[in-house]
Amino acid sequence: MLPRDLGPARLNALRPRQSAPTSGWRAAAFRLSGGKWNPGPSAAEERYTDLARRIGNTRLEGPHSVIVGSMKGGVGKTTVSCLLGLCLAEHRGDRVVAVDANPDAGTLADRLVGEEFAAQVTVRDLLAHLDEVETFTDLSKYVHLTRRLQVVASDQEPESSEAFSLSDYESVVRVLSRFAQAIITDLGTGIVHSAAQGGLKHCDSLVIVGTLTQDGASRAQRTLDYLANYRDPAGGLPHRHLVKDAVVVLSGDRWSESIDAEVIRDYFRGRVRAVLELPADRHLASGGPIDLALLQPATRDAVLEISATVADGFYGRDTHGLAAHGFRSSSSHR
C-alpha cells in the first residue's frame, strides 16, 4: 500500500527518442534509411538547439530594456544592436523592438530595412502621433518591420536628432513598452546625451561594444568607468549595478599583431558578467542591410551566443529599469 502522501506512480511507456539530424551527412543518412538509422544531431546542431532554447525560453515578467552603447564610434554598436534585435525576434514568441537613439542621425534602421525605407517614417512621426496610439495596429504605422523585428528609425536631420531629449525618449519607450516585451536601444556614442541618460535610467540590461585594439578596448573601459562612477543629484550611483551585470562584445573587425588580445579579454572578464566576441564578417563589413542568413557560420554562432547570454539576464535578476519606473505591457497584449 502506498503512503498517503504519495499518489499512484505515473505511467510512461514512451521509449526515449533521439532527435533527428537536420543537416550534413547525418541528415542524409537518416533520410536514405527511411528513418531507421538515426546517428543523432551533430555537436554543432546540439549547440544551436541549446542556444535557441536559451533565447526563446527565458520568460519576461514585463517590458525589458537592453541598452547597447560605447563612447567610441566605429566599433560596431549599431551592428550589434541590429544582430541582437534580429536574433531575439527570430527565436522569441513575444514582440521585440529596436530603437535608434543615436543623436547623430543613426543608421540602425538603414542596416535593417534599407536607407530609402528608413527615411520614410522616423521617431519624429511617432512622437507627433503618440496620443493616437492605442493599439498595436496604431503603433505599426510609425515603426518599420523586418522579419519579426519592429524598428524605430532616428530622425535623419542632425538638428532634429540633437533635439531628441530625455522626455522624448521616455515618451517613446512608454508607448513601446505597452506592446513589446524586449526593447533594444542603440545609444550611439552619446552616453552623456539627454536621450542616453533616459535610456540608462530605464535600462535593465547593458551591452558595451569594444574591439580587440588599444583604442576600442580603452574606450569600452572608459564607458564602464563613467557608468560605474556616475552620481545622480542625490549622490547615488544608479548605474553601478549595470556595469557588474553587463555583457561586453568585442568586435573582430580590426586586429593587430602588436595587441595582446588575451589581456583585453582578461580585463573585461574581471569587471562584467560575460565577455564575448563577434568575428569579422564580409556581409557585415559591407554596411548594407543585414540578413542573418548571409552571415558566415562562425558569425551566426557568435550572434546566437551573444543573444542567449543577453537573454539569460531577462529573468531572475533585480529589476531597476522599465518595470521599476512604472512601464507596463498592456493587458491586451498578454
Rank of each mutant, 00 (worst) to 15 (best):
H202E: 05
E61M: 12
R59F: 09
E162Y: 12
A98H: 05
K36A: 15
V152Q: 01
S218Y: 02
V97G: 04
S332M: 08
I67M: 15
D100T: 05
A298T: 02
S258D: 15
R147Q: 15
A280K: 11
R328N: 08
T211A: 12
D215E: 12
T185Y: 14
L130A: 04
R317I: 01
G24V: 00
R124P: 06
Y48G: 08
H241F: 06
V192W: 15
F164C: 07
S177C: 06
Q156E: 02
H202L: 14
S194K: 04
S331R: 15
K201Q: 11
F268S: 00
S177F: 10
G114Y: 13
R300Y: 14
R10W: 12
E61W: 08
D318P: 12
A324Q: 13
T107S: 09
G270F: 02
R254A: 13
G235W: 11
G316I: 00
A9C: 07
V175N: 07
S330M: 06
V172R: 09
K72T: 06
R254Y: 11
L200I: 02
G321Y: 12
A13N: 14
H333R: 14
D215A: 13
K141N: 14
T223E: 00
R26K: 05
A195F: 04
H241C: 00
R31K: 11
G288E: 12
E132Y: 11
T135R: 13
N229Q: 09
T135P: 15
H144R: 09
L6D: 10
R47D: 04
A195Q: 06
A196Q: 03
A105E: 04
G198W: 08
V272N: 01
V133I: 15
V151F: 15
D312T: 01
R222V: 01
W37R: 13
H241K: 01
D312F: 01
I306Q: 00
L139H: 03
A323L: 10
R317Q: 06
A43T: 11
A323I: 06
F117L: 13
